[in-house]
């Protein structure tokens, strides 16, 4: 870990102004990801700006009936919040399936969106990695890639985004609100994270120095029929090999709206709206779910150790849909 200076700020303009006085400054919130990366010399900020005292620590009702989650609320507070639990149970369930109680107590919503991949090679500076050191090569493609992507990867990077929370946010069509030197903007969740392409060093579309201030959840009717299914190597405290967030609006046994997002399979939470639409106004039955599962994984590509994820993803999608539709008990 390199030496760095540290400043704690209480207003956002100071936070942004701090940036200009340093070469490689970074914001820090819960620190649960950033500190780990600093300890292994993957992140080497010369200055840390502690933003955890900024005022973005509230849950607010939105005029359209949605809910605004402050970026600095912890994952635990968010998941256990009564409004979230009743109106967005999918989000609660996704958050609570992640990390451990201790981590969720520290981790913030903003930080969760910005956590970096768990690719082993990314964490180990002894190995080439395009995400960490552009142009150095990707060790995972020909190396050990059990936890890597099967969708939307590139020859430069096959890493996945590890978050559970973000998979639910993707399914819920959340909007990320940010503030930067040039003012405020709102980014639809689907456009927030990116695919690696030839710039795997960029995880998302956040501009330099921009701060996430909140995440908006639009109103929906998904609270009755939802599921977050996380498949992993142990029962808790492990990242998803594959996870599936499903949200359905149902009229009897007809699905009037369906959203499906996958985690653990791509550089970003994976949505395929075309495939989802196959379910619109269809009967909730296994055959229809199978069709969607096939459609979602149609272009999936395995790299050896992770090839099983293609079949796993299909089965997980079907299972999650069955459970969300109430055809099977929730796990």
């Amino acid at each position: 870990m390199n030496r760095f200076t540290f400043a704690s700020v209480t207003d956002i303009s100071t936070a942004i102004a701090e940036l200009d006085e340093h070469d490689t400054p970074k914001y820090i919130a819960g620190g649960t990801n950033l500190l780990d990366l600093m300890k292994v010399n993957v992140e080497k900020p010369d200055h840390l700006i502690d933003i955890s005292n900024l005022a973005f620590n509230q849950l607010e009702e939105l005029p359209d009936g949605g809910l605004r989650l402050g970026a600095l609320i912890t994952n635990a507070e968010t998941a256990w919040n009564k409004q979230v639990k009743t109106r967005y149970p999918l989000l609660s369930k996704a958050i609570l399936s992640g990390a451990s109680a201790q981590l969720r107590n520290m981790a913030t919503n903003g930080g969760n969106l910005l956590q970096r991949t768990r690719c082993y090679y990314f964490y180990d500076t002894a190995t080439p990695c395009n995400k960490r050191e552009p142009g150095s090569g990707c060790s995972a493609i020909k190396g050990y890639n059990r936890i890597h992507a099967i969708l939307g990867a590139s020859e430069d990077c096959i890493a996945t985004h590890p978050s559970d929370m973000c998979v639910a946010l993707a399914a819920l069509d959340a909007v990320v609100n940010v503030t930067g030197r040039d003012g405020d903007r709102s980014i639809p969740f689907a456009n927030f994270h990116r695919l690696p392409g030839d710039r795997p060093d960029l995880d998302n579309t956040l501009g330099a120095g921009e701060i996430i201030t909140s995440v908006d959840l639009p109103p929906n009717n998904f609270a009755q029929h939802f599921e977050y299914l996380k498949v992993r190597d142990r029962a808790s405290y492990a990242f998803a090999l594959v996870s599936v967030a499903v949200a359905l609006e149902m009229d009897g046994n007809i699905m009037t709206k369906a959203r499906i997002a996958l985690g653990g399979v791509a550089h970003k939470p994976w949505r395929n709206t075309e495939a989802e639409n196959l379910l619109t106004n269809q009967v909730a039955v296994m055959e229809n779910f199978k069709k969607v599962a096939d459609a979602i994984t149609k272009d999936a590509l395995g790299y050896g150790d992770n090839s099983f994820k293609i079949e796993l993803a299909k089965r997980a999608v079907i299972r999650a849909l069955m459970q969300a539709a109430g055809l099977e008990v929730q796990s």
Binding site: R234, A235, S236, Y237, A238
Partner: peptide, 13 residues
């Protein structure tokens, strides 16, 4: 080579 990825059982297991 860390305990996030070298898995050993947790209570839930």
């Amino acid at each position: 080579h860390d305990l996030a990825e070298y898995h050993i059982p947790v209570n839930a297991d």
